[in-house]
């Protein structure tokens, strides 16, 4: 039985005819019969069946376990050189000693503090600078090339200089974090300022509002979502700044731990520090996401 017969059986009323092929009409309007396109084909809408959530989680866990297992076996069988790559069991053992014996909390605390302070300072300074451009178009035009230039500098290239100026302590790590975050915030906030609805400003002026009132009641609330969108980017940048600072010169911090372990061929310790750093990064990212949701709720659109 052909497809047409089957279809007719299931839907007896439906009159299934072959779809007409489009043709070019001749000069007198009569179709020449010459097709301009291949015949229309009916396709099913591509739809992917969704897996249940538990299956996805289980799948993910399996991939992780298989990966770790392969690493461990590979190291045991000599496919992977454990001198360079270490192995999961050694990393786990080192993790335990790292948290029990060493001054792990000092290092974590140091890196965490540097990242958070750099993040807060850089983001708030950048936001304030970006908002300030609303006050004067001339001033904004004047400042723009400098901002763009500063943005184009690879800020990490300045890190050695920053260490020289601010010393090997916490302040130099914060300064690198600020250098990385401040421009992002400034540029994003400035974009926000440029997109403020002119009509809302005009409405406020027509009500006799002062510039300060327009700034507080229109500009700041309008720009806020832009400022918030930059938070997640900045927390990552601030952490990068802190680690690079610690790489160059430091007495504490996870970045220093990584560098030190690498130089003494304690590869397991490198992995431990990297893992802890990832955890820290995830924790800060989640914290900022939470902050974002709370702030966004207040300026509900």
């Amino acid at each position: 039985m052909g497809i047409r017969e089957k279809f007719a059986e299931r839907f007896p009323v439906a009159d299934v005819r072959p779809v007409a092929t489009p043709t070019i009409p001749g000069p007198a309007g009569a179709p020449t019969g010459k097709p301009i396109a291949s015949p229309i084909r009916l396709r099913r809408l591509p739809v992917e069946r969704q897996w249940p959530a538990w299956f996805i989680v289980a799948f993910q866990a399996t991939i992780l376990l298989v990966g770790i297992g392969a690493w461990e076996t590979g190291a045991k069988l000599g496919w992977i050189d454990p001198f360079f790559w270490s192995r999961p069991s050694a990393i786990f053992a080192t993790m335990l000693t790292f948290f029990t014996a060493g001054d792990a909390m000092t290092d974590i605390g140091f890196t965490f503090r540097a990242a958070i302070i750099g993040f807060v300072l850089g983001t708030s300074a950048g936001t304030a600078l970006g908002l300030s451009f609303w006050w004067s178009r001339n001033y904004a035009m004047l400042a723009q090339p400098y901002i763009v230039c500063f943005e184009s500098i690879p800020k990490l290239a300045l890190a050695p200089l920053i260490i020289l100026v601010f010393g090997v302590g916490l302040s130099s790590k914060i300064a690198i974090g600020v250098a990385l975050t401040v421009v992002v915030s400034t540029l994003t906030t400035f974009s926000g300022v440029k997109s403020v609805d002119r009509d809302l400003e005009r409405l406020m002026y027509s009500l006799g509002a002062s510039r300060w009132q327009v700034f507080c009641k229109v500009v700041v609330p309008s720009v806020l979502p832009w400022g918030i969108s930059v938070l997640r980017v900045n927390i990552g940048l601030a952490l990068t700044g802190a680690i690079v600072g610690e790489f160059i010169a430091s007495q504490h911090g996870l970045g220093r731990a990584i560098l030190y372990a690498g130089q003494t061929y304690e590869i397991a310790l490198v992995w431990v520090a990297v893992l802890v750093l990832s955890m820290l990064s995830i924790a800060m990212y989640l914290g900022v996401s939470r902050l974002e949701t709370v702030l966004m709720r207040h300026i509900k659109r």
Partner: peptide, 12 residues
């Protein structure tokens, strides 16, 4: 008092 076609209510 000036009102435009756009209502210009503050969404926040």
């Amino acid at each position: 008092g000036y009102m435009l076609q756009k209502d210009l209510l503050f969404p926040w």
